[in-house]
């Protein structure tokens, strides 16, 4: 067993255990911190797979920004001393989780991941691969890329509008 495999299994173990922690923890704030652990160990797995850029983007976006926003939202809106998870939406959550999992499995099976050559994959390797990723995003995949940023922009404006209308109502 190589060192990479040992590190991978270690990280995979942390990922699985902390994912279980996210779902099973009865304390929302604990679940949020567990989520951070999941996201960071997934970044570690990306590193083991030599996808440096993906790993750093994962840490930057999910480890830094998303977790902080989630925590911020929980801490500002929950009023209890010990925030508890909401349980009335369990069936819906189960459905959504099963659906997402099914979709992922289908996507995984349908993809050519088994035959993928890691040296030519845009997400991995050094600066040249990183450049290929950037060029790809702005040429071949420009429309999906712009669509994604449009969605984010709409969400941003929507959030500001919601906050604004509450303010004007005073």
């Amino acid at each position: 067993m190589t060192a990479q495999l040992v590190v991978f299994y270690l990280l995979a173990g942390v990922t699985v255990l902390s994912s279980l922690g996210v779902v099973l923890s009865r304390n929302v704030v604990h679940a949020a911190f567990m989520l951070l652990l999941v996201l960071l160990s997934v970044a570690g797995i990306f590193l083991v797979a030599v996808a440096e850029f993906l790993a750093l983007a994962q840490i930057l976006i999910y480890g830094g920004a998303v977790t902080v926003v989630v925590l911020f939202a929980i801490m500002l809106t929950r009023n209890d001393d010990q925030p508890r998870a909401d349980h009335s939406q369990r069936p819906l959550a189960l459905l959504a989780a099963a659906g997402t999992f099914g979709l992922l499995v289908v996507a995984f099976v349908a993809s050519d991941i088994a035959t993928l050559d890691e040296t030519t994959d845009a997400g991995s390797g050094g600066e040249s691969a990183f450049e290929a990723l950037g060029t790809g995003l702005f040429t071949d995949w420009a429309i999906p890329f712009e669509l994604a940023s449009l969605v984010l922009l709409v969400a941003l404006i929507g959030a500001i509008m919601l906050a604004r209308s509450a303010e004007d109502g005073e």
């Binding site: 911190f33 951070l36 960071l40 440096e52 850029f53 750093l56 983007a57 840490i59 930057l60 480890g63 830094g64 920004a65 977790t67 902080v68 925590l71 911020f72 801490m75 050094g126 600066e127 990183f130």
Partner: peptide
């Protein structure tokens, strides 16, 4: 690191979580 600048930005973002 080839991605040194990105690394700096990514790692320094985690500190906030500790304060929270």
């Amino acid at each position: 690191l080839d991605l040194g600048l990105l690394y700096l930005v990514a790692i320094s973002g985690i500190g906030v979580v500790g304060l929270l």
